[in-house]
Design a protein around this nucleic acid. Structure first.
Length: 285
DNA sequence: GTCCATGTTCTTTA
DNA sequence: CTAAAGAACATGGA
């Protein structure tokens, strides 16, 4: 459910919590906390939230004592502000109550599949582990360097959070379509022009998706319970068989790296347009 | 019952 | 040994 644009939207809609003091913590499942021996209620109880920001697909909370933790929504996680008397839905794992203010909302974390989690960072450790660069500030040369170091289909590379952090299945497919690159194109065979275009496409797609407050296909909603609208603007994702918006060719769906992959066979040709020499020998010996 | 799902990590294979 | 492909995780909806 959440890729960069959705996570960004959740973070934006959570900003009303900055400066608020956590009055009570109810943790219904401890197995969503990492590390498993962390005492989350003790860490949160009585602290104020200094800031909430996004890094890749992580929602990073900084407390007034400089402690940092982040929530990852996984596939089905939801972080929502609710009225305290709102019925408790199944798979609600954490509820935080705050010092009373005008909107007396509580924060709830729900995640049926539990691929998401709450991660406590040890002091003086950045939340970055081996996450790649943020796509919105990515430079083409930076992407080129990283792509040249690996040999695999571009689709798989862009899903790899260590190579570039924040894209998921939807936005990789949309970015590749906009860039006119076949999802199976090998990373180390893309030319400079293609990588320039890809960098631009990724940024364009993400910016537009954020402007539409994310994609709601299944059940994504922001912290206020509002769905996004970008799914209406998808060019390829989940549009198998439908005509390409630019050339009318039916969108195809293949499976790559175990993931559904959507593309237009005409706008995203298998081989680069300018191709002349096929004089490559295999094993020289 | 079957297949599929906006993600990540561990295991197996090449 | 390294890199890439595959399986696993847990739940619900079509």
């Amino acid at each position: 459910m959440p890729e960069l644009p959705e996570v960004q939207t959740v973070v934006t809609t959570l900003q009303c919590l900055t400066g608020r003091r956590i009055e009570s913590v109810r943790l219904f499942r401890t197995d969503i906390v990492v590390p498993s021996n962390a005492n989350l209620p003790e860490i949160l109880q009585g602290r104020s939230i200094q800031s909430i920001h996004r890094r890749a697909k992580r929602i990073v909370f900084t407390l007034d004592n400089a402690k940092v933790f982040f929530i990852h929504l996984g596939m089905t996680g939801r972080l929502t502000l609710e009225q305290p008397d709102h019925p408790l839905l199944p798979h609600t794992h954490l509820i935080l109550n705050f010092d009373s203010q005008n909107p007396n909302h509580e924060l709830r974390f729900r995640d049926p599949r539990r691929f998401g989690g709450i991660h406590i960072l040890p002091p003086d450790v950045s939340s970055d582990d081996n996450l790649g660069p943020e796509p919105l500030t990515l430079r083409p040369a930076q992407l080129a360097d990283r792509l040249a170091k690996t040999h695999r289909p571009i689709k798989s590379a862009l899903l790899d959070q260590r190579l570039i952090a924040g894209l998921g299945n939807i936005y990789v497919d949309e970015s590749l379509h906009r860039a006119g690159i076949h999802p199976r194109a090998f990373t180390d065979r893309l030319n400079v022009a293609q990588i320039d275009r890809l960098t631009q496409s990724i940024k364009q797609v993400l910016k537009r998706a954020i402007a539409s407050r994310g994609s709601s296909l299944r059940d994504y909603v922001d912290a206020n319970g509002n769905a996004g609208a970008f799914q209406k603007l998808h060019k390829v994702y989940d549009r198998e068989g439908e005509p390409c918006a630019t050339c009318k060719t039916p969108i195809e769906r293949i499976v790559l790296t175990g993931r559904s992959t959507h593309f237009c066979p005409k706008c995203q040709p298998r081989k680069p347009p300018a191709r002349k020499a096929l004089a490559k020998q295999r094993v020289p010996r």
